[in-house]
């Protein structure tokens, strides 16, 4: 029986308890929140979230619903319009001269008109859109699978991330998002140009938006203009892989 070890444990417990209680009372949480070491410790849980979700459900399909389950009104969120003059012209002309650029680590860079995306094999799915804020809405989405578009372009073996460059802006920064190849090649990951059996309206991301059904709403980039295959997220704006990730500290992996 080692008495000294026991006393150390008691002291440790007492001190931890006092520090915990005192720190909380004195809003020590705010100071911990701003402490980069503590912050990165908390943020390291994101790796656990990603790995555990991939361990249990790497290829799992998001639940699909029936037309009876559709939300009567789907809430539009984030940017609901695009101010850019070129975009407004394209919108007015029904995106007649518009093309989706596919470039980066691909064998054959593409410029695909909307008609080419519409002529590809289509996938339609009724899914639940889960916002990071807590609300949900059920809608029907249709478009080609992202994997098909990437197949046409031919991914180079080094490609590890797919980045979506968008027409909408927050201040002077255009919106952007990224996913890894597991989500990019997932069968339910589509480039939707149709929503609830109508052409995608502006507030929901016309002419084209990403659906990446196993992640939260901010990953579903709207107004997608260009798709870029990359080896790393370093050098992409702040390096964290998305607008909200870089600007506000939201998690890149948004499966929870």
């Amino acid at each position: 029986m080692s008495g000294s070890a026991k006393i150390l444990t008691r002291r440790g417990l007492l001190r931890a308890g006092a520090l915990g209680a005192g720190g909380l009372v004195l809003s020590g949480c705010d100071r911990l929140n701003d402490n980069s070491g503590f912050r990165s410790l908390l943020e390291s849980a994101e790796g656990l979230h990603l790995r555990s979700q991939r361990l249990f459900g790497r290829d799992a399909l998001a639940r699909e619903f029936s037309p009876a389950d559709l939300s009567p009104e789907f809430r539009a969120n984030g940017n609901r319009e695009v101010k850019d003059a070129a975009y407004r012209q394209q919108l007015a002309s029904g995106f007649a001269g518009w093309t989706l650029k596919v470039d980066g680590l691909v064998e054959k860079p593409l410029a695909l008109p909307l008609s080419a995306l519409q002529a590809m094999p289509q996938r339609a799915q009724i899914t639940r859109h889960d916002c990071v804020e807590g609300w949900s809405a059920i809608g029907k989405w249709q478009g080609p699978q992202l994997s098909h578009v990437l197949d046409v372009a031919g991914l180079k073996p080094q490609a590890r991330f797919i980045v979506f460059h968008c027409a909408d802006r927050f201040g002077s920064t255009p919106y952007y998002e990224s996913i890894d190849m597991i989500d990019a090649l997932h069968p339910q990951t589509i480039l939707a140009w149709r929503m609830n059996d109508k052409v995608l309206p502006e507030k929901f991301g016309a002419p084209l938006r990403l659906r990446v059904e196993r992640q939260l709403g901010y990953k579903h980039a709207k107004y997608v203009m260009r798709i870029e295959a990359r080896e790393s997220l370093d050098g992409l704006y702040g390096g964290k892989g998305g607008y909200w990730e870089d600007s506000s500290g939201y998690a890149w992996y948004a499966g929870i």
Partner: peptide, 14 residues
């Protein structure tokens, strides 16, 4: 509430 978990364990949410 996790969209990731809902894919592989839909019985939880349901």
């Amino acid at each position: 509430m996790s969209p990731g978990t809902d894919a592989w364990a839909p019985w939880v949410t349901q």
